[in-house]
């Protein structure tokens, strides 16, 4: 999968949840959205990107959410 595209998608989701006053709730919202709507190979690609490339390009909230997904923390 095109990781650049996935990073962009994750950042778009994060920008929506950024207005959530409770940061934790925002991160949980991003992670839940990705888990709920992304096909497994997309999920694997973004978590691999997080693991292998430090999540380059991911916004702070998106990175936190993807890390949480990578550790199965949802």
């Amino acid at each position: 999968m095109n990781v650049e595209r996935l990073v962009s998608m994750a950042n778009d989701i994060a920008r929506y949840f950024a207005s959530e006053p409770d940061r934790e709730e925002g991160i949980a919202g991003i992670a839940s959205h990705i888990k709920r709507f992304w096909e497994p190979r997309m999920l694997q690609a973004i978590t691999a990107h997080c693991r292998d490339a430090d999540g380059a390009g991911l916004d702070e909230l998106a990175l936190a959410a993807v890390r949480r997904l990578g550790t199965g923390g949802l």
């Binding site: 999968m1 095109n2 190979r41």
Partner: peptide, 17 residues
């Protein structure tokens, strides 16, 4: 698990999967 959306299908096709 959810499947691919249309634009995801395109990306996966270009990816070879």
């Amino acid at each position: 698990q959810p499947g691919l959306r249309i634009p995801n299908m395109f990306e996966a096709a270009l990816d070879g999967s």
